[in-house]
């Protein structure tokens, strides 16, 4: 379970910042759509995913709720089923206990494959491949049932404090 343990965020009393790039592949597009941004994790477990290009918007995950800021600074809840949102937030927050309960994992090259056990998630997601490098998550590839694929690649981890750390979560 060495890889699985690496899914958890490093534990520190500061806000973690992780740069990422995302590729979205749709079966009806010739080439993927690309995005870049930063992911933030507060010490209390809250997550903020801030997209910067091609245009700015952010997702904030508070508890089991997912909030969307469409670029105007206002956070609005995304209509999601409570259980599904919880599974997504478990995954992003790296809650190992919950991940073990709701996902099965099997080793693959440089990482592991997570397969959902909940029927509501299985309807949407086939599996998620996670690869690791130097004991940290390097890529996450989400394979959806509808053939859309999202691939995230993560950069260096930095730590923030003060106002800079609070900004991504501001309502």
């Amino acid at each position: 379970m060495r890889y699985a343990d690496a899914l958890a965020w490093p534990d520190k009393d500061q806000t973690a910042q992780l740069a990422f790039t995302e590729e979205r592949n749709f079966p009806f597009r010739k080439f993927p759509k690309r995005y870049a941004g930063n992911m933030f994790r507060a010490p209390n477990g809250e997550l903020a995913i801030c997209y910067e290009s091609p245009h700015a918007f952010r997702l904030v995950i508070q508890g089991d709720a997912i909030l969307l800021d469409d670029g105007d600074g206002q956070l609005r809840p995304l209509p999601t089923d409570g259980a599904d949102a919880r599974v997504v937030s478990d995954l992003l927050r790296g809650d190992l206990g919950r991940l073990r309960a709701d996902w099965t994992n099997e080793p693959i090259d440089d990482g592991l494959r997570l397969t959902p056990t909940l029927e509501s998630i299985r309807k949407e997601i086939k599996y998620i491949d996670v690869t690791f490098a130097d004991g940290r998550v390097q890529t996450v590839t989400v394979n959806q049932r509808n053939q859309a694929i999202r691939r995230y690649e993560f950069g260096a981890l930095t730590w923030l404090t003060g106002d800079t750390a609070a900004l991504p979560f501001a309502e």
Partner: peptide, 15 residues
Amino acid sequence: FLDRPESMAYADDIP
């Protein structure tokens, strides 16, 4: 629309 997060859920329907 594909830039929006909810677009992933419509991948089946968009064609």
